[in-house]
Design a protein around this nucleic acid. Structure first.
Length: 498
RNA sequence: GCUCCCAUCGUCUAGCGGCCUAGGACGCCGGCUUCUCAUGCCGGUAACACGGGUUCAAAUCCCGUUGGGAGUACCA
């Protein structure tokens, strides 16, 4: 098998987008599956919109999902630099060669003139450029330059059909004449994406291009350029120099629209902040357009890499379903070993000011102990890591700080004080303070002897202990809090106004 | 307008001519378990867009229609 060389080449604008990152993921997985090379290049030729902040967010995004790269920004490589803003000399040279070979030409027509000509010839406005300047003579050129015109540079498109085999969609043919001669360099000398993307892929020997289907229709013109680049000797790829293409289906948002940058749910960091596990999010992303088996959809990154085949990717677009993503995340959380779950949860608890440090070893001993006992209690109850904060907060405050929610107060029936009384007297005299004893004693006294229904008996205790209507298991929570604190909380509830 | 892509339950998908009275997952609705909430287990709901072919046989192949989407920039 040939050495697969794929790349991810975003332009650093805005915050990392779920659809974009899915593209990065599929490239990365395909590289790893084939023991190939994953290149990370930055396409920052749009001075207006690109930002350094956005670049850093891109790094952070890939780091979060554990997507690493073999060549590219930060790590370097044989084809450095990997930021296009640092490669202008290269492009300048390539353009000159294309011009010399007659594959590209200077075009002096202004947009208005093109529009005007289309109108005069009865062509629709969207027809685009008409090839008018292909044969500009030296004299005409001199006149134009004297007029102060600055030409753009266009690629000469051939007049035959262009066919390629898409890895995901099969054979695709574009009719001759459907793609006009397109601009590769602006009038001000600034190279455009249309040039730099194929040029860098050619120079870096990228032989497999996996990208969103939104650029499917620009593939024919790129194919032409790859061939020209091969002819002028700036294309490392074998054969005619054209890489393989695979156009990934869209990730859709609400309605039938591509998940847009404006849609808040497209922001990758939303999921990080909510506490999606990186592997779980990767799992879900991979499910958008691909399946590991007919009857399974939970898998590890390792399994993904082993099983992934770009040819199995579904060509139709997929909707991002938050609830399904949540369900996948929940399953991953439940499958975690306790120590790992603690490790993953700590940053969120720290962020929410529940605990005092950002990693386990810097925590106070008491906090460590609580976490080790409490995390198993919430493992089956949280769907995201950040949910642990609100669920566990009551274990990290004292009885004075504990808030009793209105929702919890509503659960209290008239006789709750007597239940608290009985419980208090009972618990006061318990010496072995563990879950089983607490359960047995409270159950036999409140339910069996006093005749309360379990739900009636334990609700006031739950409210007293957790301050909430819903909490982790009651007796376990009491054990973690300890006798002293538990009794204080019972007293506190007794004196509350409802 | 022109070019190109897409089409199985509400959603993500399995299916690549017979194993399909279409399988799984999420969601939703019931039930059981139960100290709340979850988990777990059991059950239910629900789809091949339409019309023509090809074939002994079509969700699967071909054509058309309809519907969705993208491109048609001196953005990427």
């Amino acid at each position: 098998m040939k050495n697969v060389r794929v790349r991810f080449c975003p332009s650093p604008t805005g915050v990392p987008h779920v659809g974009n990152i899915r593209t990065a993921l599929f490239n990365w997985v395909w590289a790893r599956h084939n023991n190939g090379t994953f290149i990370f290049r930055i396409e920052d030729t749009d001075i207006e919109r690109d930002s350094e902040e956005s670049y850093n967010l891109l790094l952070e995004a890939l780091k979060w999902l554990n997507i690493d790269w073999d060549e590219g920004v930060e790590v370097g490589g044989p084809d450095a630099p990997y930021r296009q803003s640092e490669r202008y000399n290269i492009y300048k040279e390539v353009v000159q060669k294309l011009l010399d070979a007659g594959f590209a030409y200077e075009s002096f027509s202004t947009p208005d003139e093109i529009k005007q000509r289309n109108k005069e010839n009865g062509r629709p406005e969207q027809f685009g450029y008409d090839g008018f300047d292909r044969n500009t003579t030296k004299e005409q050129k001199a006149t134009f330059l004297k007029e102060g015109r600055k030409p753009v540079i266009r690629i000469k498109m051939p007049d035959h059909d262009i066919t390629f085999t898409d890895l995901i969609r099969g054979k695709i043919t574009f009719k001759a004449g459907s793609v006009p001669d397109y601009v590769i360099v602006r009038g001000n000398g600034h190279p455009l994406y249309t040039l730099v993307n194929p040029v860098d892929d050619a120079l870096m020997g990228v032989n497999c291009v996996l990208r969103g289907e939104d650029i499917l229709s620009s593939t024919p013109r790129q194919i032409v350029l790859y061939k020209y680049l091969k002819d002028i000797g700036v294309n490392k790829n074998e054969g005619d120099g054209v890489p393989e293409f695979g156009h990934l289906p869209y990730v859709m948002g609400e309605g039938n629209k591509k998940l847009s940058k404006r849609d808040p749910s497209s922001n990758l960091f939303l999921y990080k902040d909510e506490g999606f596990l990186p592997d779980a999010f990767t799992n879900y992303l991979a499910l958008l357009g691909w399946a590991i088996a007919p009857d399974r959809d939970i898998f590890s990154v390792k399994e993904l890499i082993e099983s992934f085949d770009i040819k199995d990717v579904n060509p139709s677009s997929a909707r991002f379903d938050y609830k399904k993503a949540l369900a996948i995340n929940s399953e991953h959380i439940r499958a975690l070993k306790i120590d790992d779950l603690i490790k993953y949860t700590i940053p969120y608890l720290y962020r929410d000011k529940i605990i005092s440090a950002n990693n386990f070893s810097n925590l106070q001993d008491g906090e460590k102990l609580i976490l080790q006992k409490a995390i198993p209690l919430v493992q089956e109850r949280i769907q995201t890591l950040s949910q642990a904060s609100s669920m566990l907060e009551f274990l990290f405050v004292n009885s004075e700080q504990l808030q009793i929610s209105d929702d919890a107060k509503k659960q209290l029936k008239d006789d709750f004080r007597s239940i608290i009384d009985i419980s208090y007297k009972l618990l006061e005299n318990i010496n072995s303070w563990d879950t089983d004893t607490l359960h047995n004693e409270l159950f036999s006294n409140l339910v069996e002897k006093a005749g309360f229904k379990p739900k009636i008996a334990f609700t006031p205790l739950r409210v007293a202990i957790s301050g909430k209507r819903v909490s982790p298991p009651l007796f376990e929570s009491m054990e973690i809090l300890g006798k002293n604190e538990t009794l204080k909380r019972l007293l506190k509830l007794k004196e509350i106004d409802v």
